[in-house]
C-alpha cells in the first residue's frame, strides 16, 4: 500500500505517494528521473549511490525512500548552478578525477559532504573520508587532488 511521502530534492519540494519498500535510489532514478545517482554494487559497499541527506553522505541503495521523509536530499543534479559547475565538479574536471565516470556522482557528493567537517583536511583524512567510495579506473590519486582543491574552493 502506498503512503504519503514529502521531501525536498535539490531544493524543490516533492509530494507524492510511494511503496514503503521503494529504496531511495529507486525513487530518485525512477519517478524523479534523476539518473545521475548510480547503482553500482547494490550492496552498500561501493558508494556510487551516495547522495546527501540533510547534508550528510548516505548510500541511497541501502535506505528506504520513506526514511528520507521530510528530509533535504541533494543529488549530483543539484550541484551545478545552470551552466556553472559546482566547485567540486570543476575540481574533478581540472584534475582528471574521473575516467569512466561511473563512481563520480557518489564520489563528488561524498566530497561535498566533507565541507565544513574538517578545516583543510590532509591527504590522509581525505582518503579515509572517501573509504566508502570505490573507483575502479583512476587509482584515486587525482580524485584526492580534486577533493583537496574542491574543498578549498568551496570555502574560498
Amino acid at each position: 500500500m502506498k503512503i504519503p511521502f514529502s521531501l525536498t530534492v535539490n531544493g524543490k519540494p516533492v509530494s507524492t505517494e510511494i511503496e514503503p519498500r521503494a529504496l531511495l535510489v529507486e525513487f530518485l532514478r525512477g519517478p524523479l528521473q534523476l539518473t545521475g545517482t548510480h547503482v553500482g554494487c547494490d550492496t552498500a559497499q561501493c558508494g556510487a549511490c551516495t547522495v546527501l541527506v540533510d547534508g550528510k553522505p548516505m548510500k541511497s541503495c541501502n535506505m528506504l525512500a520513506i526514511q528520507a521523509q521530510g528530509a533535504n536530499v541533494t543529488t549530483i543534479e543539484g550541484l551545478a548552478q545552470g551552466d556553472a559547475l559546482h566547485p567540486m565538479q570543476a575540481a574533478f574536471r581540472k584534475h582528471h578525477g574521473l575516467q569512466c565516470g561511473f563512481c563520480t556522482p557518489g564520489m563528488v557528493l561524498s566530497a561535498v559532504g566533507l565541507a565544513g567537517q574538517v578545516k583543510q583536511p590532509s591527504e590522509a583524512q581525505i582518503r579515509e573520508a572517501l573509504d566508502g567510495n570505490f573507483c575502479r579506473c583512476t587509482g584515486y590519486h587525482n580524485i584526492v587532488k580534486a577533493v583537496q582543491e574542491g574543498l578549498a574552493d568551496m570555502t574560498a
Partner: peptide, 9 residues
C-alpha cells in the same frame, strides 16, 4: 565502523 556513509545512518 563501516565507512562514513554507513556511520551517518
Amino acid at each position: 565502523i563501516g565507512d562514513r556513509q554507513v556511520r551517518n545512518r
